[in-house]
Design a protein around this nucleic acid. Structure first.
Length: 941
RNA sequence: GGGCUCAUAGCUCAGUUGGUUAGAGCACUGUGUUGAUAACGCAGGGGUCGGAAGUUCAAGUCUUCCUGAGCCCA
């Protein structure tokens, strides 16, 4: 028989499964198919009776397309949802979006400005409509991005913080916090943007270098000829000066000027106080060239000293300042309680005037006095523009010793990039330390939560421990209103649970506009339940509705309370969830480690205040995507990547493998080099699948499966290995260490299968009779491998594994509806693993000998080799000829020897034989039998 | 400036409570095969564990300092 004909008699792999994946093109089609088939809905239906597992999502902000950070975060979440689902948990995933807040309002305003309009031209309702549409547009775009990533989720019923139902949930939570005694109205010096005209959250502040005007100012000491010198970088706060602080332990010196630079403002003979340590630097700045030290004293000696304001006719007491340092300046600190956090704190403690005379737009109010020497009216003037006038006034008054430009790190608005100021304003707060002891309760609750990695516990603990009261109010439009009334005369907050619920119901029906519309349209009485006002003895005219809105961290911090209904909800509690398949606390919250100060933090405070417990049982955190060198990705450096590029270049399954292979507890690196490695890894999996599919093309599991007891040793060995690997993989998934699962599966495919098992079994698969027992045994194992590897890889590689599944089981099937099998106890065979242990050492020695033979040019493949093994090798009781893939094995002596095989090479199976088949004389015995089998089959057909 | 965290072969990762010549896979080099072929087999080279000092009989593994990086805060 000619070689070509012989080749026809082999059982070569047959499959349509392409070697090249073509992921970028095909994945979008598969996404469409999954949506059309409603895979998510089918899973929900199938798991409706299963125990639930809730991963609750922290809502992304509905602005812009997804970036690499989103990809990392949502792929990881999908690993959990899918792996839990395949372990028969009911693990719904409800996508959500954070829709309110400044960034969107700002964007809408700037779009208005481009059209030549102003936000003042619009009613609250109209402005919000634009914001709502804007957010909605990005929700749609991001939903597409999300689906494209192959993530499982309830895309038809996501939660949006701007959904009326969720907005109502926030109002209800606000009501609970009010009624439980956590919320108070106070004043506070807080970071304020004069451009956006709002208080800013911590997260909304960025630090950049700013050039300020630094000044040295002399305050005359009342009743003496001495002066105390302060240094500040905010001349605009001088009109608000109410005191000067000294450091209790700091040593100060009084100096008399004996020589000064000709341009210096200081006069010969003038006397100034400076901190001793800063004497040299401060006098130099002020152009004081020589001086005499008259006396020194400790700061505490200034107690009771009264100073004269440098340009107003009022006094400024000297007080002790805990924050005074001698790092720079003069050692004396100018105190303007309306314009600084420490200033405010000190001012309140000693009873200074706290009133803020700077308006929200950054101009002085009309209560600010004029500058008398230079005759300038500050009222109505922009504070930044006024600085020069104030300096001129102080110069005229002889109080200014020096001014110069000074560059330093200064807070700016993250949106407008405008420099921020401290301003004392009325705000609403959640109290951390009042009689409700929120801080103590929250700290206690932290230890009832599992933090992964463990250091997350300390991280959030120290943040909760050190944070100030939570300022929940914002002076903006796009957000949930603080739906309370303040009594015009008593200043008391007027509300109760019934009133809150009444308003919440209105919001649920009409969105947050329900509040503002009624106020703006003079229908305020509708905000009250019938008879409510009368029952309290109040009239509408007594009440001032609040127009502030809630901090967006309050929105997302309450999602635990209104997104998913607890299945184990205690009776008697009001139903507050818009879904029926959730539970509370959630099993897992999982976001980037920045959320220790963000969402984990606000959710914890809100939940503890409202329900007395944390909203989550486990909090996982992941790192950030950085470049190949570990550096943050940034536009200016140009080291970033866009998800879109990756989808085009590699496809999502490869991006998902990149995530799977990385240890997310640290920052994870992205580079072309890394992706090249991942792509190779993907190909290894793909080829493994292709080999499995190809060699199973003629296998019918129903009829051809061989019982475990009848399998050869090698098959039992592979199954034992797989059982161990699968156990390891399940443990890895359960502990959220996905890269261990990935690695275990990958190494199994690369070493146990590709290097060993597949290589050895090619002979049987190709050359044995098609339905021979040995071949069916191998196929039985291949079938198990295909099933187990595919299902256990499915959470990581949903596209490719489904492609494999459909290739094997038909287009109507989906791996994502499958469950993970329990590890078959029959496969767990330690004895067979032990039986093979000595074989691996032997194999290595044989390979070395064969390799030496090969390098001499005598042989090519192992089948050209015959080996002599130590006699002891017989004890293994294994079919060594096939396991070593050689033509012959003999036993003698105690070392391994290899030589070119003698006998005739069978042209069908390429192994060498001394005797050939009796009738098919050109081929070996085994191949001849296979040919007979084919002939018989042909005759039967 | 402060808090938390990280730093092992070119890459991604392992390295229990400190204890023999620091591991894996990939990549690389050589080579074989051409019946998994833009695939597969075999063999080989390559780290002294970011740097320095210290504790110890012994340190990648403990301490301190330094350098670099990330997150958060000021």
């Amino acid at each position: 028989m000619a070689d070509k004909e012989l080749r026809q008699t082999l059982n070569l792999p047959e499959t349509e499964f392409p070697m090249r994946a073509g992921l970028p093109k095909r994945e979008p089609e598969w996404v469409k198919d999954w949506l059309a088939e409603d895979i998510y809905g089918k899973i929900r239906a199938a798991r409706s009776e299963s125990p639930s597992f809730i991963l609750h999502l922290g809502p992304p902000y509905a602005n812009g397309r997804f970036h690499m950070g989103h990809v990392l975060s949502y792929v990881l979440k999908d690993f959990i949802v899918r792996s839990k689902t395949m372990q028969n948990f009911n693990a719904p995933f409800v996508p959500g979006w954070d829709c309110h807040g400044l960034p969107i309002e700002w964007k809408v305003e700037s779009e208005l400005r481009e059209k030549g309009k102003s936000k003042d031209d619009l009613s609250t309702k109209e402005l919000r409509k634009l914001c709502r549409d804007y957010a909605g547009k990005w929700v749609s775009a991001q939903k597409e991005d999300w689906q494209r990533m192959g993530c499982l989720g309830d895309w038809d019923e996501p939660y949006l913080t701007m959904n009326p139902k969720n907005e109502a949930g926030m109002v209800r939570e606000l009501g609970r916090l009010f009624n439980r005694g956590y919320v108070y109205k106070g004043v506070k010096s807080i970071m304020w943007s004069t451009v956006e005209e709002t208080a800013l959250a911590e997260a909304e502040i960025e630090y950049h270098d700013k050039e300020s005007m630094a000044i040295f100012v002399a305050f005359p000491v009342k009743g003496t000829d001495e002066n105390v010198v302060i240094w500040t970088t905010t001349p605009w706060t001088m009109p608000a000066n109410r005191a000067v602080a000294y450091g209790e332990e700091v040593e100060y010196s009084l100096v008399e000027i004996t020589q000064a630079h000709e341009k210096a403002a200081a006069n010969i003979g003038a006397k100034y106080w400076f901190a001793t340590e800063l004497l040299e630097s401060a006098t130099k700045y002020c152009g004081i060239e020589e001086y005499a030290v008259l006396k020194t004293q400790k700061g505490s000696a200034f107690e009771g000293t009264v100073l004269q304001h440098p340009f107003y006719d009022r006094e400024a007491p000297m007080i002790e300042g805990f924050h005074v340092t001698v790092d720079g300046g003069t050692g004396f600190v100018h105190i303007a309680p309306a314009h600084g956090a420490e200033d405010f704190q000190i001012g309140r403690e000693v009873g200074l005037e706290l009133e803020c005379q700077v308006l929200g737009d950054g101009t002085y109010s009309n209560t600010v006095a004029d500058l008398s020497q230079t005759d300038v009216a500050l009222a109505g003037m922009d504070i930044w523009k006024a600085q020069k006038r104030i300096i001129e006034e102080m110069t005229a008054q002889g109080a200014l010793l020096r001014w110069y430009k000074y560059s330093h790190s200064y807070p700016h608005s993250w949106r407008s990039k405008a420099p921020l100021i401290f301003r004392t304003t009325p705000q609403w707060f959640v109290a951390m330390d009042n009689d409700k002891n929120l801080r103590a309760d929250a700290l206690k609750e932290i230890d009832n939560v599992q933090w992964l990695p463990a250091y997350g516990r300390n991280r959030i603990y120290s943040m909760i421990e050190g944070r100030p009261d939570w300022c929940i109010s914002r002076q903006r439009k796009w957000g949930v209103p603080i739906t309370v009334f303040v009594h015009k005369h008593t200043g008391e907050v007027v509300n109760d649970a019934a009133l809150f619920e009444h308003i919440a119901a209105l919001v649920e029906a009409e969105t947050i506009d329900a509040w503002d519309n009624r106020i703006e349209e003079n229908r305020m009485e509708e905000l009250f339940p019938a008879g409510w006002l009368a029952s309290k003895g109040l009239s509408l005219d007594d009440l001032e509705p609040q127009r502030d809105i809630l901090d967006v961290w309050f929105d997302s911090g309450t999602t635990h309370a209104h997104v998913m209904r607890a299945e184990n909800e205690r009776k008697g509690k009001e139903s507050r969830f818009h879904r029926e398949d959730g539970k509370r606390p959630a099993d897992v919250y999982w976001e980037g480690s920045d959320q220790h100060r963000g969402w984990f933090h606000s959710s914890l405070l809100e939940s503890v205040a409202s329900y007395g417990e944390a909203p989550y049982e486990t909090v996982l955190t992941h790192g950030f995507v950085v470049d190949g060198k570990g550096m943050k990705m940034s536009k200016s450096i140009g080291n970033g990547v866009e998800p879109e590029q990756l989808l085009k270049k590699y496809g999502m399954d490869i991006v998902r493998l990149w995530v799977a292979g990385s240890d997310y507890t640290e920052d994870i690196r992205y580079s072309d080099e890394i992706m090249a490695g991942i792509s190779d890894g993907y190909r290894r999996f793909r080829n493994t699948f292709r080999y499995l599919l190809g060699n199973l093309s003629d296998f019918d599991a129903q009829t051809d499966t061989v019982p475990y007891a009848d399998l050869p040793e090698l098959e039992k060995w592979v199954l034992a290995r797989m059982a161990n690997v699968l156990t390891e993989v399940k443990e890895a998934y359960d502990s959220y260490t996905f890269h261990k699962a990935y690695r275990a599966l990958y190494n199994f495919c690369a070493t146990d299968l590709s290097n060993i098992y597949f290589d050895i079994r090619k002979d049987v698969l190709y050359c044995d009779a098609k339905s021979g027992h040995r071949r069916r045994s191998v196929q039985t194992v291949l079938m198990a491998l295909l099933t187990e590897i595919t299902t256990h890889l499915a959470p990581m590689m949903p596209f490719t594994t489904d492609e494999v599944w459909k290739e094997r089981f038909g287009e109507a099937e989906s791996v994502h509806l499958a469950l993970w099998n329990d590890v078959n106890p029959e496969w767990q065979n330690e004895a067979v693993l032990e039986q093979f242990t000595p074989f691996w050492a032997l194999r290595e020695q044989v390979n070395l000998k064969v390799e030496a033979l090969r390098s001499e040019g005598d042989v090519g493949s192992n089948l050209d080799v015959a080996v002599t093994l130590p006699s002891s090798a017989q004890d293994m009781n294994l079919p060594l000829t096939e396991l070593l893939i050689v033509s012959a094995v003999s036993f003698s002596g105690d070392v391994v020897q290899a030589e070119k095989a003698s006998g005739e090479k069978c042209p069908r199976c390429w192994s060498h034989h001394e005797t050939m088949h009796a009738t098919h004389t050109d081929v070996c015995q085994r191949c001849g039998e296979a040919l007979d089998g084919l002939k018989a089959q042909g005759a039967a057909a």
